[in-house]
Simulated assay, not measured.
Amino acid sequence: MNRTPKKITPDRIKDSILLLNYTSNIPYQILLGKFYDILTKKSNYILPLTPPNPQNPVIEFTEQPSGNGVTLGFGSEEWVLFNNVIKIQLRPYTIIFNCLDSYPSWDIYMPEVKKVLELFSELGHIIRYNSIQLRYISHFQNIDLTDIVRVDLTNHFDFQDISSNYRKVLHSEVYNIIINIANKLSNAQNPNSNEFLSVIDIAVTNDKIRTNNLYFLYELIDNAHTLEKKTYFKTLTQAYIDSLNPIY
């Protein structure tokens, strides 16, 4: 079966990150305040606790050790605005969207992204978007990926083995696909524990878009999402996909 499911349960998505790099006609420190104003006054976004402070740099995305192995750091919380669907991190010339505790589905996530980008467009200060990255990180608690990943994955993605941690970059005409697979990461705080975490991390990128046309940008993002989904399901056995109550 070559069909790509529209929905699976559980989806195991920990992070659904959309990163957009842009060029503006005013300094970032000023633009941050304008972003904040329009998000809080024309939409339903709020800050968790502390108002944004342009003097403090935002923490970069990093793979950070945690009690469950590896998680994705989403930066200082004082720079994150959120509503009941997604959260937004604003850092120098980059906008980062992510899901909250659970992934709401693309049909809910992407319209929220469009709403935010159209509000930012009203300001007239984004000259163009330069690059996109759509990155989905799925966590598999106490699941050995060798039990659910296709046996021919080594041939399909040119991996030598799937028993540890691997990274592969695939190139297409429009996008680069970056696949990171980490199997059976130990509990960093309790190395003697039998608990472990496995991770499938797939990013689809285009760093040469150079556009101020939002409709073209939306098409690129939607196509990146389709490619990410197809790549993800190509890594999994059909038996495992069938166990997730797939809806086609």
Rank of each mutant, 00 (worst) to 15 (best):
N212D: 11
I88C: 08
N130A: 03
K208P: 01
K7Q: 10
E219Y: 13
D158I: 11
Y129C: 00
F140C: 03
I241R: 07
K168W: 02
N155T: 13
S102I: 14
G33E: 05
F120M: 06
A224D: 09
V85I: 15
L119K: 14
I95L: 15
A203Q: 06
T231I: 10
R3D: 08
V199M: 02
Q89W: 04
I241E: 00
I148Q: 00
K42N: 14
K168I: 14
Y129M: 05
E173T: 14
I95W: 03
I143N: 05
N245M: 09
N213H: 11
T211R: 04
Y22T: 01
F97D: 04
V116R: 05
I221Y: 01
I17H: 07
V116A: 00
M110G: 02
Y28T: 04
T94E: 15
L185H: 04
E195T: 11
V80I: 15
P10S: 05
Y109Q: 04
V113P: 07
T205N: 10
Y103H: 08
K208A: 13
L49N: 13
E78W: 12
P51N: 08
N53M: 04
V151K: 14
T4I: 15
R135T: 01
D158C: 09
P48E: 08
E195Y: 12
A182W: 07
Y93R: 06
Q160E: 12
H139E: 11
E78Q: 14
L18G: 02
W79F: 15
D107H: 08
Y166W: 08
D101M: 05
I108M: 07
P246R: 06
Q141L: 12
L47Q: 06
L134V: 06
Q189G: 07
L39Q: 00
